[in-house]
């Protein structure tokens, strides 16, 4: 995902590569049961719209959504959340 214009995002991407300021929709979460459940419980369910507040690229992200509030997700978690970019 080198060049970053909004149109380059079509299909599913890990949250870890989405740039700051974009709003994305969670499609699925790949991971162990404990982690998936944790993310669901704080409101990061499939279908949830989240804003990427901070992304340090190949590092953790900070996201925000009405239910979840502001959360920081480690890189290990962010790359397991598959999202699609909203226009």
């Amino acid at each position: 995902m080198g060049d970053n214009s909004a149109d380059t995002y079509t299909g599913l991407f890990p949250l870890s590569i989405i740039e700051e300021g974009k709003t994305v929709k969670v499609v699925k979460i790949i991971g162990g049961r404990g982690l998936v459940r944790r993310l669901y419980e704080i409101g990061l369910l499939p279908g949830a719209e989240i804003e990427v507040v901070r992304n340090s690229k190949h590092g953790p992200v900070i996201i925000r959504n009405k239910i979840t509030g502001t959360f920081s997700l480690g890189y290990g978690v962010a790359k397991k959340i598959m999202v699609e970019v909203m226009q």
Binding site: G31, P60, G69, S72, L73, G74, G76
Partner: peptide, 12 residues
């Protein structure tokens, strides 16, 4: 393997 990462509230 890798760390499973963290999930953490960012308080104001």
């Amino acid at each position: 393997g890798q760390t499973s990462g963290y999930v953490m509230d960012m308080p104001p």
